[in-house]
């Protein structure tokens, strides 16, 4: 393993914000893995630390395939991680909304330009992002529908689902969208939590990446083959909104099968606890995403359901 500082940003009152790349193997640049871009992405940082630890042992055993190189960048924003701040400390900008970036631009734009440039040298890009809504997901691999996505490659992670999502305006300034536009196969791995560390889900994410690296002929590693992934498009994932605002009392959990008419959650009066309204399943399906906020807002999505594929 070699460790290299690929970039640092100086500030007058703290040590430099260093961005470090951990490299394994030598030769063709095969896979770039990027972790926490936001300061509160502790689960994503933790996954990278497990990955680096495991890849170090794999390398020691000589199990990185000859002529292949893997790079892991665990964090782009150590400064914010140390103070629990989501975005860049000085100007509150979001690094994962700065791509493709500008190497002569503002600090987060420079970071974006550098990381995109370094990661674009690799054939595969893997990132652990957090979702913009607070909630838990069934772990999955996500790619953007850009016309350049390769969903069959995404199934090689062996995660239960692959989601091919139409990019929204703000997705176009993310690392993975820009890697895809640079002709790289780029995958986002969502593991449900962000601020809190979930050991089991972190382990699942590490296994998924090691499985992918094995199947792509980059490492030699024995592990469980994982799931035969179901590929979902935007049409198969349907938002279920709350009809009222109040305290969210969920009656079901992610990965649960539900039938049309089932009560997914109750919305309670925050003062007297009475039920104001129910959130009802509009069709038979599986709960893919559930909001974890204590309060629900009327007309806002609380669940995402997978429309059941078979009767």
């Amino acid at each position: 393993m070699t460790v290299e500082e690929i970039m640092s940003v100086s500030t007058d009152y703290r040590e430099d914000n260093q961005i470090k790349a951990f490299r394994f193997g030598r030769g063709r640049k095969s896979a770039a893995i990027v972790g926490a871009m936001r300061g509160n992405e502790y689960q994503q940082l933790y996954i990278c630390s497990l990955l680096i630890h495991t890849l170090e042992r794999i390398e020691e055993r000589g199990a990185i395939v000859a002529g292949k190189e893997i790079m892991v960048i665990p964090s782009l924003n150590a400064h914010s991680a140390n103070i629990g701040k989501k975005y860049w400390g000085k100007d509150n900008s979001d690094i994962n909304r700065q791509f493709p970036g500008n190497e002569q631009g503002e600090p987060t734009s420079r970071i974006a330009a550098k990381v995109l440039s370094v990661a674009s040298e690799y054939s595969y890009g893997i990132q652990f992002p957090s979702f913009y809504l607070e909630g838990e997901f069934i772990p999955h691999v996500r790619m953007f529908a850009t016309g350049k996505e390769n969903s069959s490659l995404a199934t090689q992670f062996g995660m239960p689902y692959v989601v091919i999502a139409k990019p929204r305006a703000f997705d176009m300034s993310t690392l993975n969208y820009n890697l895809q536009m640079n002709g790289r196969n780029a995958f986002s791995i969502y593991t449900s939590t962000t601020v809190n560390i979930d050991e089991a889900l972190a382990g699942q994410a590490v296994s998924a990446v090691l499985r992918f690296l094995t199947r792509m002929g980059i490492i030699r590693y024995q592990l469980h083959p994982g799931y035969i992934a179901t590929v979902l498009g935007d049409k198969e994932l349907v938002n279920v909104k709350s009809p009222a605002s109040g305290v969210l009392h969920k009656c079901c959990h992610i990965n649960q099968e539900v039938e049309r008419g089932d009560i997914l959650a109750e919305i309670l009066n925050p003062y007297d606890g009475s039920v104001i309204s129910d959130i009802i399943a509009p069709f038979d399906g599986i709960i893919f995403f559930a909001n974890t906020e204590p309060l629900a807002f009327e007309n806002s999505a609380v669940f995402k359901l997978i429309k059941k594929l078979h009767a």
Binding site: K86, R97, Y132, L133, A169, F170, N239, K241, F297, N299, S300, A301
Partner: peptide, 22 residues
């Protein structure tokens, strides 16, 4: 204040998304 997202990235919005998108 609800999602910490810049509202000027949410347009044209959606009736089934977050409170900002709505």
């Amino acid at each position: 204040p609800f999602t910490d997202v810049d509202m000027n990235t949410c347009f044209p919005g959606s009736e089934g998304g977050s409170i900002d998108e709505y």
